[in-house]
């Protein structure tokens, strides 16, 4: 009787050990072998984009591994992980001859901020980390994004394209980019709504901002406010930055 009990507990122990080792291997062992190591991860492009919930970001995320002298390292391993249903394709790989690793990012199904964590092993077996922020827009924020493209972007976006030349530099009072969280975050939703509805003069600011209260509906103005809250950088802190999680 006693022997059976011992045998049973031994079996349980073995099973537990097996499970633990299997899990460890699953999460820890690299799928690709590094050919070189770096000491720093830097972001080249693809940070702070936004797209509809669950969608793939338009631009790929490009990260670079550098050595201690700041020179790009080819053949270093980069791994990307994200929570909340977001994922990178590919999830891991080696940096190319230019020291860069490129992946497309697909956002999770809920609106809000997503943090992509990039890691790369160093020669000493430690990991270097880097965090990249992206945002997912729900229906309301996406509606705001589209209204922005129609009505606001010509003056509020300093970037020009061939199809759309920015009017920002032609204005005396420079409009704030909608991503300018430092200025826009402290402004209340009521103030922003008032400026959009009644123009800059509503809060003693420039008349160069025209009133849109008769052009846009209340819902549309709310959508614009939601959009600029969603893309604010630094993030809009009304509720603290919440990263999406499962």
């Amino acid at each position: 009787m006693k022997r059976t009990g011992m045998r049973a507990s031994f079996l349980v122990l073995c099973a537990a050990l097996l499970t633990i080792s299997a899990c460890t291997r699953h999460s820890g062992a690299p799928g690709v072998t590094p050919r070189a190591f770096g000491t720093a991860l830097v972001s080249v492009s693809g940070e702070k984009q936004f797209a509809g919930v669950g969608s793939q970001l338009e631009q790929p995320l490009v990260l670079q591994v550098n050595d201690a002298k700041g020179v790009a390292v080819a053949g270093a391993v980069v791994r990307l992980s994200a929570a909340g249903g977001a994922f990178a394709t590919p999830r891991e790989g080696l940096t190319g001859p230019d020291g860069q690793f490129t992946a497309t990012i697909t956002l999770g199904g809920a609106g809000g901020h997503y943090q992509i964590v990039a890691s790369s092993p160093t020669a000493s077996g430690q990991q270097i980390f880097m965090r990249v922020d992206e945002s997912a827009l729900g229906y309301q924020e996406m509606l705001g994004a589209k209204l922005n493209e129609i009505h606001c972007i010509r003056c509020h976006d300093p970037e020009s394209t061939a199809e759309r030349v920015s009017n920002m530099d032609n204005l005396t009072a420079k409009p704030h980019a909608f991503t300018d969280g430092a200025v826009l975050n402290p402004m209340s939703a009521a103030d922003l709504t008032s400026i959009i509805s009644h123009g800059g003069v509503a809060v003693n600011k420039s008349a160069e901002m025209p009133p849109y209260g008769s052009m846009l509906t209340k819902q549309e103005i709310a959508a614009l406010v939601a959009f600029l809250r969603a893309v604010a950088d630094p993030p809009y802190l009304a509720q603290g930055v919440n990263y999406a999680s499962n």
Binding site: G52, V53, G54, S55, Q56, T106, G108, G109, A110, Y139, Q140, M142, L143, K146, L147, I150, E220, A223
Partner: peptide, 18 residues
């Protein structure tokens, strides 16, 4: 979630801004 807008298309034949 990436296909959510398909729900709107069941009634909205005319394009919607959102």
């Amino acid at each position: 979630a990436r296909y959510l807008e398909s729900g709107c298309g069941q009634c909205h034949i005319q394009p919607l801004t959102g």
